[in-house]
Amino acid sequence: MKLHIQNETSRLRAVILGTAESNGPTPKIEDAYDPKSVQHIKAGTYPKEADMIKEMEAVADVLKKYDVKVYRPEIIKDYNQIFARDISFVIEDKIIIANILPDREREVEATKYIWQDVPKENRIVLPEECHVEGGDVMPWNDYVFIGTYSGDDYADYITARTNMDAVIALQELFPHKTVKSFELRKSNTEPKDNALHLDCCFQPIGKDKAIIHKNGFLVESEYQWLVDFFGKENVFEITKDEMYNMNSNIFSISEEVIISERNFTRLNSWLRDNGFTVEEVPYAEIAKQEGLLRCSTMPLIRD
């Protein structure tokens, strides 16, 4: 397979879409990876497998409608395999296998049948000290935007997923690109104050536009850099509640076509007003695990 990813929005040709099949029972609170899941476990509103399968199949249908080749992970019994973006990501013709939470290594194995078709020299496993997940990594032409957390208390946050060692390693891997890192706000307990990944508070769309949530960024000047980079008139600012509901975590099939959650009324109206075709799907149950459309898709080939 010849991988090709230069940005977030060029016409999609092949993608891995996670799966909710055999998702397993509701996790115990101490086994949850993020504060939003904990909130729903406590409230008894954690999503049911049947509902999540239905939501993911709606996405698969949209992708197939646009002639995108859709790969799915091999099913692991009673195991959460929804968030395909966490475990690997593609930049140019290379697939980087994420150093993920140890509990989730089996997810990587479940996509092995796909990435073993990639030439060996283009399969990259970063050194052990590099922690990185695909939700924090966004190729954008000459840039790679990366969400990170570099506080001394990094180890105290299960929500801190990508460290500066990984940022440096990716800069060395792609020396011809500008790797730009952004410090994200982390909380183990309050989902409205937690940007689990960069795509939970920011995403580029189209040719020159972006969705952004200011409070997801720890350093105001880094947020401001993005606003200036895209231009204030091209940026859709989302509220704290919209970030909590994952409004920045939509998914581009092309520069013109976006898959979005059907309840994102304000965002979807703005997208249509700006000339995008919006394919609306139900994804509110998946969102309860602090991930949405970008988190559950991992592009392999874009034009």
Rank of each mutant, 00 (worst) to 15 (best):
N247E: 14
I286Y: 05
S10V: 05
E172T: 12
D86V: 05
W225G: 03
H213V: 01
F264I: 08
R13Q: 14
G216T: 06
V132T: 10
K48W: 01
I168R: 02
K69L: 11
I211W: 03
T19L: 12
T277K: 10
G216A: 06
D117R: 14
V59F: 01
P27A: 02
E233R: 05
Y244T: 00
I29A: 08
I76P: 05
Q289M: 11
F202W: 10
D156K: 13
E290Q: 15
S181C: 06
P191I: 01
V132R: 02
T9I: 06
E133Y: 02
A195P: 04
I301A: 07
T239P: 05
E121S: 12
K192R: 13
A169P: 05
T111K: 10
R123H: 06
S150T: 15
E121V: 12
A284C: 03
R106H: 13
G18F: 05
I259S: 04
N274A: 13
R11E: 15
E49F: 00
D208Y: 15
E55Q: 13
K288Y: 04
S296N: 13
I16V: 14
I301M: 06
V179E: 12
Y149C: 03
I100A: 14
H213D: 04
D241F: 04
I253R: 08
S296C: 12
M243R: 14
C200I: 08
E256M: 07
A110R: 07
D273Q: 15
D142S: 12
K69M: 09
K36Q: 13
K94V: 12
